[in-house]
Nucleic acid binder design. Sequence first.
DNA 1: GCCAACGTTGGC
DNA 2: GCCAACGTTGGC
Length: 138
Amino acid sequence: MRYFLIKSEPGVWSWDQMVAEGAKGTHWNGVRNHQAAIHLKAMAKGDRCFFYHSNEERQIVGLVQVIKTAYPDPTDPAGRFVMVDVKAQKTFRRPVTLGQIKAEPRLAHISLVRQSRLSVMDIDDAAAALILEMGGMG
DNA sequence: GCCAACGTTGGC
DNA sequence: GCCAACGTTGGC
């Protein structure tokens, strides 16, 4: 099982809305960046994604599970980009802020810190374990 | 509200 | 095919 991180602006699609979708989950569509799309395609059923609120909040608030692997995103007129389906799995006991992540030397290498504009990224196992621990999810 | 990073577009 | 201009994202 691998870990990833997906970003959402809470004003557009929030963690509360994600939770409200329950077991049926939702399509993670609208990705229009090639590097982000590569990560979507790498996701397997059962993989986990940290759910990050960007902009106003800047914190990881939950964990979702991939329930359907990459397939064409109908909102892309060119038909080139893909989406996956995810469902909410766990709400973080304590959200992990970008500030905390930046203050942790063992997380200095992750894409969230190094490439602020990337909206879907992979997170290595060691970093994932640390983030879960920081969120009170260890 | 500003700015840096970066992807895309269009003129040449 | 290069590069300037422009648009978008997201942190501060």
